[in-house]
């Protein structure tokens, strides 16, 4: 699904990723852990194609296609989704309208018929239940006046609606209380199947307790210094990151 090889990249001339290699197979959930500034979010931004992020060497392929050669919207349309660490507010743009525009962009890309308003409402009501969100959020502007937890749930709602093949969850647990965390994790868990892949970026083990990743990678100074299973997450929770530093 996703294959990253010896990726070197940076932002605004500052080198941040120093040779990352990672393979995510269909159906797998990989967790990337690390301190602030270790390059976690840079990795997410490079995969999704944010401007100003520059790849100096290495490659990222998605189902065998060079992802780095594609525009951000083409990456999204081909099934790469990111749940934002800081979801963006778009004043005046109705949440329902935004989500339907996104879904229709995808349907159109796949050569399918666009969804009409009535069918979309039926669909979205189902999805709302999965993340325990009230219907009133639909009539509000995108992320406008949402609490931190509401914004993150809204991201997961978008994921469930757009049904991406690869989801990058960038610190989806930050700013969530324990109840919201459970809801978000359940939303992701119910969405998992043998074809969908996930990369979850996080500081803490908490989220992983609910999500049960297949692989855990520790990122320090833009490099994966250790990979393992859930026991690695527990070790990190106990000992911190310093024992992994050379």
């Amino acid at each position: 699904m996703l294959k990253i090889e010896n990726l070197h990249a940076g932002v605004d001339g500052k080198q941040i990723l120093n040779g990352i290699s990672l393979t995510v197979n269909p159906g797998e959930l990989h967790a990337i852990m690390g301190r602030n500034g270790s390059g976690k979010s840079t990795l997410a931004n490079v995969i999704t194609g944010r401007d100003n992020y520059e790849v100096t060497s290495g490659s990222v392929t998605y189902n065998g296609i060079d992802l780095l050669d594609m525009s951000p919207e083409d990456r999204a349309l081909s099934g790469v989704f990111m749940s934002f660490q800081y979801p963006v507010v778009i004043p005046g743009v109705n949440n329902t309208y935004f989500l339907r525009a996104a879904l229709n962009a995808k349907l159109k890309h796949q050569g399918l018929k666009e969804i009409n308003a009535a069918d979309f409402m039926r669909l979205i009501r189902e999805k709302l239940k999965l993340v325990n969100m009230d219907e009133k959020y639909l009539s509000r502007a995108v992320n406008d006046g949402f609490s931190g937890g509401e914004k993150k749930r809204n991201e997961i709602l978008q994921m469930l609606t757009l049904e991406p093949a690869l989801s990058i969850l960038d610190e989806t647990d930050s700013g969530l209380d324990i109840d919201a965390l459970k809801i978000v994790a359940e939303g992701v868990n119910n969405f998992r199947n043998s074809e969908r892949s996930f990369v979850a970026i996080t500081h803490y083990q908490r989220l992983l307790d609910y999500m049960k990743p297949d692989h855990i990678h520790v990122l320090i100074d833009g490099k994966i210094v250790k990979s393992g299973d859930m026991t690695l997450a527990h070790q990190l929770e106990e000992k911190g990151y310093s024992w992994l530093e050379s």
């Binding site: 999704t48 194609g49 944010r50 401007d51 525009s71 951000p72 919207e73 999204a76 349309l77 989704f81 990111m82 934002f84 979801p87 963006v88 778009i90 935004f98 525009a101 996104a102 962009a105 995808k106 890309h109 978008q158 757009l162």
Partner: peptide, 14 residues
């Protein structure tokens, strides 16, 4: 903002 445009792009909107 660039961040607003990127957010839309990331959802497949041109």
């Amino acid at each position: 903002g660039e961040d607003q445009l990127f957010y839309c792009n990331q959802r497949g909107i041109s």
